[in-house]
């Protein structure tokens, strides 16, 4: 179940109608990984959700690469905080 599936980067770009250069610049900014295998470039299926989110942020909201980096970091923090809040809520429930 933890096996990582690889998606050809070209195929992904075709599907989402984005330039491969876009993927390269995401890699430059350390936002995604591009896996090289026998001269072909692949994306990890585990990162697809994040990548699609990045595409929406960039194309729908016009957020640039630096902005995406900031947004993703803040979202991760938000997720951690929400998780922590959930745990604390459960602890509070215990004392009710």
């Amino acid at each position: 179940m933890n096996e990582q599936q690889l998606i050809p980067a070209q195929e992904f770009c075709l599907h989402h109608q984005v330039e491969i250069e876009f993927i390269y610049s995401l890699r430059e900014y350390g936002l995604i990984r591009v896996i090289n295998n026998e001269g072909n470039e692949y994306l990890s299926s585990e990162e697809l959700n994040e990548l699609e989110k990045i595409i929406r942020l960039h194309y729908d909201l016009n957020v640039n690469m630096e902005g995406i980096d900031v947004v993703l970091n803040l979202l991760r923090q938000l997720e951690d905080t929400q998780h922590e809040m959930n745990e604390l809520r459960n602890q509070l429930r215990f004392y009710k």
Binding site: K53, R56, L57, D60, L61, N62, V63, V71, L75, L78, E79, Q82
Partner: peptide, 15 residues
């Protein structure tokens, strides 16, 4: 629209 979309887009407002 752009300003509001940046504020309320579901990707930046999870849950």
């Amino acid at each position: 629209y752009r300003k509001l979309a940046r504020k309320y887009h579901p990707d930046v407002n999870p849950n």
